[in-house]
């Protein structure tokens, strides 16, 4: 059966209804995507709960949880300033949700087919919502704090008057493109890495099934390569979560302080 397997690296992004339901475009249908979101939430909850011992001298787990919260609040307060404390929950939410989703998608549970992990952040319907929420916070905070002066964001300091007709549209486009770049960056990084891992995984299986020396050679080469790609992917998982949280806090900083 495996010998006839065709390379279909996109299959891992397929959303299926679980529990006997059918995908019918309604909100309450339970899917593998929803399941893995809940698993991600459970993992975050477990991790934080384990770090809630609140001891004066932290154990390893508590130190790890404190490091995570310290990282999120450091991002918010470091980039936004003291008023960034209000935005710590959201920065923390996007950072941990993306980080855990990315890592969860890399877990080798797939050796049991039923437990094949689903990478939530490889769906732009997910990353898009995250980006839109972040962008909405920027808009709401910006207009709330500065009113129409918020449009001053499109006029950098010291721009010569004659250049304004050129600069303002450019600034505006670069501002409006932010949610898309935010969503697509994460989505593309996840999907590309997973396709790469998947394709080389198929090379290993097919190479071994071919049974020829060339097949074994290709399988061995792919195995070595895939080990490296996996390590790189783990790095990308963390970096993408960091980048998303960092850019969110930078954009919020723009909204809070203008330029």
């Amino acid at each position: 059966m495996a010998a006839e397997s065709k390379i279909d690296p996109m299959h891992q992004f397929q959303i299926d209804a679980l529990g006997g339901g059918v995908l019918d475009g309604t909100p309450f249908i339970f899917t593998n995507s929803a399941l893995w979101m809940l698993i991600v939430f459970g993992a975050i909850l477990l991790f934080m709960w384990g770090g809630m011992k609140r001891e004066l001298i932290p154990g390893r787990w508590q130190a790890a949880a404190e490091m995570l919260t310290g990282f999120a609040s450091g991002l918010a307060i470091g980039n936004i300033g003291p008023e960034g404390k209000k935005y710590v929950p959201w920065i923390f939410t996007v950072f941990t949700f993306i980080l855990f989703s990315n890592f969860m998608g890399m877990m080798p549970f797939g050796v049991f087919e039923a437990a094949h992990p689903f990478t939530v952040t490889s769906q732009f319907s997910i990353t898009g919502v995250l980006a839109i929420i972040s962008f909405s916070i920027v808009l709401i905070v910006g207009f709330w704090k500065h009113g129409f002066k918020f449009f001053g964001l499109f006029v950098p300091h010291g721009t010569p008057l004659p250049l304004l007709p050129l600069i303002v549209p450019i600034e505006m486009i670069s501002f409006l493109v932010r949610p898309f770049s935010l969503a697509l960056r994460l989505f593309v990084a996840m999907i590309a890495g997973h396709i790469l891992v998947d394709v080389f995984g198929y090379f290993i299986v097919n190479g071994i099934n071919a049974g020829t020396p060339m097949g074994y050679f290709v399988a061995t080469l792919s195995f070595v390569f895939i080990a490296g790609v996996n390590a790189l992917e783990l790095l990308v998982c963390a970096i993408q979560a960091y980048v998303f949280a960092l850019l969110t806090s930078l954009y919020i900083n723009d909204a809070v302080h203008l330029h």
Binding site: I15, T31, S33, T96, I126
Partner: peptide, 19 residues
């Protein structure tokens, strides 16, 4: 089109729970 409502529903649930 088939999944976005479900995706958004569960995402909203999970994000709200985390937040």
């Amino acid at each position: 089109l088939l999944v976005y409502q479900s995706q958004w529903f569960w995402l909203a649930l999970v994000l709200a729970a985390i937040y």
